[in-house]
Design a protein around this nucleic acid. Sequence first.
RNA 1: GCGUGGAUGGCAGAGCGGUCAAUUGCAUGUGGCUGUAAACCACACGCCUUCGGGCUACGGGGGUUCGAAUCCCUCUCCACGCA
Length: 389
Amino acid sequence: MKFFEVKNPPAGGKKSKARVGVIHTAHGDIHTPAFVPVATKGTLKTIPPREFQEIGVEVAFVNTFHLVAHPGAKVIQKFGGIHAYAKLGIPLMSDSAGFQVFSLGGGDSQKRIKTHEGEEVPVKKISEEGVLFRAPRDGKEILFTPELSMKYQQQIGADLIMAFDECIYHGADYQYTKQATERTHRWLQRCIKAQKKSASAKGYGEAKQYLYGIIQGGTFKDLRQESAKFVAEQATPGVAIGGVAIGETKKEIREQLRWVAPYLPEDKPVHLLGIGQSDDILDAVRYGVDTFDCVEPTRLARNGIVYCSKSDFEQFARVDLGASKYLKEKGPIQKGCRCYTCQNFSLSFIHHLFKERELLGYYLATWHNLYSFAEFFRNLREQIAAGKI
RNA sequence: GCGUGGAUGGCAGAGCGGUCAAUUGCAUGUGGCUGUAAACCACACGCCUUCGGGCUACGGGGGUUCGAAUCCCUCUCCACGCA
């Protein structure tokens, strides 16, 4: 079966490149555009996997760095891979650990931590070979190279896997951005090579894994475009856009997408890394993006922020569950919402749960936010199919 | 009635002669969260301010002292013990 099917090839001349499609994997189909909630450590925090279908979650995102740090890729492999181990029951996408160069490394490469011996060492060290990380919480040193990232991702066994890249920190100058982007390109070629090699090796890849190359290029138009061209023409089943939403304004985020849009492949699924606000998603969908992973709905929910949107086409409005003004609110989070939370619980009760730090509160809030996203994407697919987007 | 220990900002609870408008936690308020070191983080939290500072505050009253939330006397209330 074909990996990616586009159901409505965008008509020539039409401005919008929005499309509906299906990504077929060994663990199920993903209807695109799709939201990919983040289950970094193998769990979509607070939500039991058996409820994914009811919410409308068809795919999730796990993180190689965190899983290698604990429980270890080998352990996961011994259990038969992440599907058997974590029982998420849906297709999975794994990140390559590339993002952690940025998020754990402190951006401008200055961040240092103390080891057990009290010695000050940099959190990350980037070289042509790869990146040496120290897990900030225990000082454990972990080496990532394109080859190792591929190996770990094969051991983990997600369906869709990411090339090892460097998410270049916001504010990097042109020269650094160019060097890092080109290095990421070289790493991509090493990833492709490594994956090919080990796909035939014993013990790996009983289910097919699809590799995505990642576009970088920072905030520079020519570098973005060069990167998009380069990545799109590599022999990978998918393409991802990375290095976005790491400190830029919304306007700058959109700009980066616009630069890259003309070079996005029409026959490969396109993933946008880290984007998760409804208005940004709508924009990206018009540029031909198919899938989006983002921590926002789940993290915000746990931080007491839930969506209460009136319109799908603006950024979702938010309700702060911690605000004491909701103590006596009898209505649900969002009137008319058909999610489990809104169908059953008053804002007052959920507010109470949050104030008391009751576990059910985090679950109900996460449920609602994920459902809001699922609805939003269902709506997007319908509208695109109807030619309205 | 006697004895002992207490009374501190919305609450709990530090401080025990100057560096105290008073540590800390909770509560409250505001802001943040876009490939998850995030069920988290930051800031504010007596009143007034021309942002220099000013004023009123550590149960009430009185005293000692250059200076008191801190020491002394007394009153009120609370807790425990003995009658």
